Amino acid sequence: MMGSAKSQWVFWCFLTKFTRYSLTLLLSAVMLADAVGATPRNGGLQIAQQPETTQQDATRAAAERVSQEGTQLYQQGTAESLRQAIGKWQEALKLWQQVDDKRWEALTLLSIGRVYSSLGEKQEALKYYNQALPIFRAVGDRGGEAITLNNIGGVYSSLGEKQEALKYYNQALPILRAVGDRGGEAISNSHFKISLHKNPCYARV
């Protein structure tokens, strides 16, 4: 039900990398806010923006908490806990959208899609992957883009649409190579070869 061990490994490696990126961005934002607050001529502006900033911080903290709850439910691996994880991540998605954090929005969409795929609801998984893909591209996250492309390819492969699957694997491979994700590259290559083996006529795609 949960897919291959290798696919899960890539997914969680990606999640770990994303968490580090987001924390770095958050720390940078805090440092910038401190610098602005230390400038006398911006004192009035800082006071005026403080309620909004406080609300943004509260919303972000809530998003992080709900996202973590979703992750814990996902890790339990039961059909019921997976459904509950989807609910938590859908709640988190709205919160990330409120604070306009595009990277976490895309990651959450990717997570929801992954659970739907694990549950066998492939069309629903595609819906979320296709929402995540343009956001990853817009923010320039090549790793997220590659994983999403690879996952879309996996969905099409499971649906028997091998030519469509190859199209997405072909997009994912060079990006995985460019970002140095050898594990993801190996998995994508494996999917690619399996599709070719089952459908030799697609070798020219």
Rank of each mutant, 00 (worst) to 15 (best):
D57P: 00
L95H: 02
G87C: 07
L26A: 07
R103I: 11
W104T: 08
E64H: 09
A85W: 09
S67R: 13
K102G: 05
R103D: 05
M31A: 15
V66D: 01
K102V: 11
V115G: 04
P40K: 08
R65L: 14
Y21D: 10
S28C: 11
A63T: 07
G44P: 00
K94E: 10
G37R: 07
A58V: 04
G113F: 04
L45Q: 14
A38F: 08
A125S: 05
L45M: 13
A79I: 10
D101H: 10
E91A: 13
Q84H: 09
G113Y: 01
A106N: 00
V66E: 01
V99Y: 04
I47Q: 14
V36T: 09
A29S: 13
A48E: 08
Q49S: 11
N42L: 15
Q98D: 02
G44I: 02
A63V: 09
G113I: 02
G43V: 01
E80D: 13
L82I: 03
D34K: 15
V30A: 10
L109I: 06
A29V: 05
R41H: 03
G77S: 08
R83N: 14
E69M: 10
K122S: 06
Q75E: 11
Q55N: 11
S28K: 10
N42C: 15
E80V: 14
L27I: 02
A85D: 07
P51W: 05
Q55I: 01
T59H: 04
E69L: 12
M31R: 07
V36W: 03
D57Q: 14
L109R: 06
L126P: 02
E52V: 15
A58C: 04
L82V: 00
T108M: 08
S22F: 01
T24G: 10
S117I: 01
L93H: 03
L119A: 06
D100Q: 15
R103E: 03
Q97H: 11
L26H: 10
D34L: 15
S22Q: 05
A33H: 08
L110G: 07
L82F: 00
A79G: 03
K122G: 06
L26I: 09
V99D: 06
V30Y: 09
